[in-house]
């Protein structure tokens, strides 16, 4: 059987000693905040590609730190700028000797203060595929892609798909997203306490069948546990429909978006 060759293929994918050392090094920095590796694990003889990867990995955590400092720097900048604004207004008011202008200036300072607090509380991103927007445009080619490229990629993904299914499982804080570039009748797009299967696809709509247990939530987000769940759901092109499982212990939430064929 041809698929028996799949294992032969995968035998080529192995954790190398260099990879292991890089990962342990990074995990130690990430979780313990320090590197206590012994001398034998430093890769003095690594080839250039490993150096490149190694540098990238270290940068991954540096970016988190840089992101935090960038936030602080942004906060200080906002504070300084608001100080300049206040001073200039006070300066002007000293000429006009108008207390009402000063009052306006202090009112303006409040949003600046809020902006500063917002900037200071900004959490640095720590996922390698998320991009640090506070960072200036990359100067060296090895640096991770800047924000606009990531956004462009996301926009591409948005434009390419025919059907998007977002699923947040009961109790989970994150959701999975399946983007279908094409879809066939009979495909199962959701499987949990029941299944959601594509029944019919046209340019204008997509129809799913369900074997029960799925329902649209009420406007206030509550779930009618006594309603009879529909057997079919239709989503019009360009429309988004939310379905939830009819359960009491938290529900799976399925968000369906259809772009048309």
């Amino acid at each position: 059987m041809t698929l028996g060759k799949y294992n032969e293929l995968m035998e080529n994918i192995v954790v190398t000693e260099d990879m292991k050392n890089r990962i342990l090094h990074n995990i130690e920095i990430e979780l313990d905040g320090e590197y206590s590796g012994d001398g034998k694990e430093s890769n003095d003889n690594v080839i250039s590609i490993d150096n490149a990867i190694d540098n990238k990995k270290v940068r991954k955590f540096d970016r988190g730190i840089r992101g935090r400092w960038a936030s602080y720097a942004a906060a200080v900048l906002v504070l300084l700028l608001s100080g300049v604004v206040v001073r200039s207004v006070i300066g002007d008011s000293s000429h006009s000797n108008s207390s009402s202008v000063m009052g306006d200036a202090s009112a303006d300072a409040a949003p600046a203060q809020e902006a500063m607090e917002e900037a200071a509380s900004e959490e640095p991103m720590d996922n390698s595929w998320q991009i640090d927007s506070a960072e200036p445009v990359a100067k060296d080619s090895a640096r991770p892609k800047p924000t606009y490229e990531a956004e462009e990629g996301a926009a591409m993904a948005e434009a390419d798909y025919v059907l998007s299914i977002k699923i947040r499982r009961a109790g989970a804080s994150d959701e999975s997203v399946d983007m279908y570039e094409s879809i066939d009748v009979g495909e199962v797009v959701y499987s949990g306490i029941s299944e959601l299967v594509v029944k019919k696809i046209t340019d204008n709509e997509i129809v799913f069948t369900s074997d029960g247990g799925l329902i649209e939530p009420n406007e206030n987000g509550s779930i009618n546990l006594n309603a009879t769940p529909p057997k079919t759901f239709t989503v019009k092109a360009g429309e988004e429909k939310v379905l939830v499982t009819q359960t009491t212990d938290g529900s799976d939430k399925i968000t369906i978006s259809y772009n048309g064929m």
Binding site: N127, W129, A150, A157
Partner: peptide, 10 residues
């Protein structure tokens, strides 16, 4: 991996 594909299609 799925998340990574989503954010980094290329």
């Amino acid at each position: 991996s799925k998340n990574k594909i989503k954010y980094n299609k290329i």
